[in-house]
């Protein structure tokens, strides 16, 4: 049985940049525990004869030829940018 702590939830929330209230942390700790419990059940099954599945679509090799297609103009590209400068997306200081 997997046990998930409030600390784990805080760590995952930090990685996902989610600001959770204390109440939410409690809720999600419980919900995540339930999800992991369910995954635990699946893990108990014998899957030695089942090939690993990363995709449900039974497709492979969806490729395109190396050809150039039209791009956006810089005005179009920047049209949703909250801030722009010198033809680029201006972002707040990083560190």
């Amino acid at each position: 049985m997997t046990v998930i702590s409030k600390k784990d939830v805080e760590h995952v929330a930090l990685l996902a940049r989610l600001a959770l209230t204390d109440e939410e942390k409690e809720t999600f700790t419980g919900q995540l525990a339930q999800i992991l419990e369910h995954a635990g059940k699946i893990q108990a099954l014998d899957t030695t004869a089942v090939p690993p599945t990363s995709h449900v679509a039974s497709l492979t090799n969806v490729l395109r030829p190396d050809e150039i297609r039209p791009c956006l103009t810089s005005e179009e590209a920047l049209s949703n940018a909250p801030k722009q400068e010198d033809g680029g997306f201006a972002v707040p200081k990083i560190v």
């Binding site: 590209a77 400068e85 010198d86 033809g87 680029g88 997306f89 201006a90 972002v91 200081k93 990083i94």
Partner: peptide
Amino acid sequence: GADRSVVDF
């Protein structure tokens, strides 16, 4: 020391 950065994609 930078106060902002500009991104070129």
